[in-house]
Design a binder for these strands. Sequence first.
DNA 1: CTGGTTATAGTATCTAGTACTAAAAAAAGG
DNA 2: CCTTTTTTTAGTACTAGATACTATAACCAG
Lengths: 184, 184
Amino acid sequence: MMRVKKKIRQQLLLNNMKEKPFLTDEELAKLLHVSIQTIRLDRLELGIPELRERIKKMAENAQTKVKSIASGDVVGELIDVELGKSGISLMKITEEMVFEKTQVARGHHVFSQANSLALAVIDAPTAVTGVANIKYKIPVHIGEKLVAKAEIVKIRGNKYFIWVKTRNETQEVFRAKFIMVSLE
Amino acid sequence: MMRVKKKIRQQLLLNNMKEKPFLTDEELAKLLHVSIQTIRLDRLELGIPELRERIKKMAENAQTKVKSIASGDVVGELIDVELGKSGISLMKITEEMVFEKTQVARGHHVFSQANSLALAVIDAPTAVTGVANIKYKIPVHIGEKLVAKAEIVKIRGNKYFIWVKTRNETQEVFRAKFIMVSLE
DNA sequence: CTGGTTATAGTATCTAGTACTAAAAAAAGG
DNA sequence: CCTTTTTTTAGTACTAGATACTATAACCAG
């Protein structure tokens, strides 16, 4: 029944890789009670690269990820902005944005897109959100592309009144009224 | 004038490390036109770890970072939750949350904390945000600790009316009224 | 021109592997 | 039960990218 045992061991190996990818062949060998050579054969068969390569890849991915978060002054992709008037932003709902259970997007992501857009359309050096009135009309799911449209409806002193409406492919899913305040 | 040259070279080395930390001693040696040994002496003096250690650290940081994002079902730290009644959440404003220019927190982070908390206090399997009424009272800066308190004020059918008030060390910085809708 | 700093050279050693060969052990088939 | 095949273990040579250490060369200044 070694044929079964091997498959099971390789499955265990794969699981281990996902959970803790920092183990050397030696440690893995001890963990699975086989020799180092067996581990290496298994890695070869399964196409799992060596520890250093694994770590390297993680570090590389990390770099790009950190960058994309750091440069995340704006949530969503600004498609078109007419400063002081209106703007359009696009955002795709990814795996990280949804609840595992329901695959429904966490509310604050939809909010973040709208809030970022509202901020982007203001023709002022620095501004903060003052008031927001928000309505989530229907839940948004993974994979959906959200298009948010912002329109400045009124400016009074240093206060900007902005409407943002967000649609998915077929209908309006969210709307918000912001009052943004420009500083200084 | 070798004394000056050395300092300059070490400064160059540091800059290189920041920009592209994936270079081996050998590549660095070629880049700075010195021998490998010189590079190693410099690294020793400057306390720069070897390539593999550098990569490892990046990968480790990445993992914890990814985890904290992935497990980010809840934004902020839940200190105390009385299901169906009230809850308290703590969040520290970090570098990534603020605008570079002003060091003021982006509005959606404060919102996210409140929204997550509102969701957490509901005694229902799944719920989404329906409506939110938000007021940012004063801008929040890097390093501040935000304490959000949520209170369920009314339940009508599948609708939960929740107040969230967020304070920093000294005053109230944000308040929100949520209507959350439990699904099914 | 001599002394001290800075740079280079070279060797032994380490880790976590690859690549390869050989042999032992286990399981399956007949 | 014996043979064949599969699986596992053992062992050697070699690699990259280092550390640690010693020795020597180059330079520059007083």
